[in-house]
Computed example of a mutant assay.
Amino acid sequence: MPKSPASLAARGLAAAAAAALLVGCTSEAKLPKDEVADTVAEKLAAQTGQPKPDVTCPEDLVGKVGTSLRCKLTASDGTSLGVTVKVTSVDGNKISYDIKADETTS
């Protein structure tokens, strides 16, 4: 018995929806950019003994080892530094990373 065009279209849409759900389930862990910025600011303040600087990051940190993100630190005196955040390990949704501030202001 031949299938109607509507039946074939419905099956195609169902298959596409199922594929989209599978892709969504395999997405990488991410840390929101505001959370990364806040953690970076806290760690740098603790290391330097200075007040917590203003740190902004342009995007979320993707949980893939080796991925890096460039953030911007603005100190209370108005000077700014670049800060590199680099993913060192990922365990489920837990992302560990190193922080390195540039040596010179920009």
Rank of each mutant, 00 (worst) to 15 (best):
P2D: 04
D38A: 15
D77A: 07
V65R: 05
A75F: 02
A17E: 03
T104E: 11
A14N: 11
V87P: 04
E35W: 15
S4R: 10
A41S: 02
L44T: 00
G24A: 14
A18C: 04
T105S: 14
L44C: 01
P58R: 06
C57Y: 07
C57D: 02
S96R: 11
K72Y: 03
R70Y: 09
V87R: 00
T56W: 02
E59C: 02
D54P: 02
V62F: 03
D77K: 06
P53T: 06
T26L: 13
E42K: 11
S27C: 12
T39L: 12
E28P: 08
V23G: 08
T74R: 14
K43H: 10
A101D: 07
G24K: 02
K86N: 09
V23K: 04
P51A: 13
A75H: 00
L44D: 08
A75K: 09
S80F: 11
T104C: 05
G66A: 07
S89N: 03
T105F: 15
V55I: 10
S80Q: 05
I99M: 08
Q50T: 10
T105E: 14
L8C: 08
C71F: 08
V87G: 00
V65S: 07
A10N: 11
S7M: 09
K86E: 04
T48L: 08
S106Q: 13
S7T: 07
E59N: 11
R70M: 09
T74C: 00
L69K: 00
T56N: 00
K43N: 04
G78S: 06
D102G: 10
T105D: 13
D98Y: 01
E59V: 08
A14I: 05
T104Q: 14
I95E: 07
K43A: 13
L21C: 07
A101W: 01
A17H: 02
N93P: 07
R70N: 12
P51L: 10
K94T: 14
K52W: 05
K33F: 12
G49R: 06
A75G: 00
P2V: 01
Q47E: 15
G92L: 09
D98I: 05
R11F: 03
K33L: 13
V55K: 00
L44M: 14
C25Q: 13
P53Y: 01
Q50P: 05
V55L: 02
A75L: 11
S96V: 11
A15Y: 09
S106F: 15
V55A: 05
D77C: 06
S96C: 10
E42Y: 07
A16H: 12
S106R: 08
A15Q: 13
E35Y: 14
S7N: 01
A46S: 11
A14R: 15
K100E: 10
S96I: 05
E28A: 15
E59Q: 12
G82T: 06
D98V: 06
S76D: 15
C57M: 03
R70C: 04
G82E: 02
E103V: 13
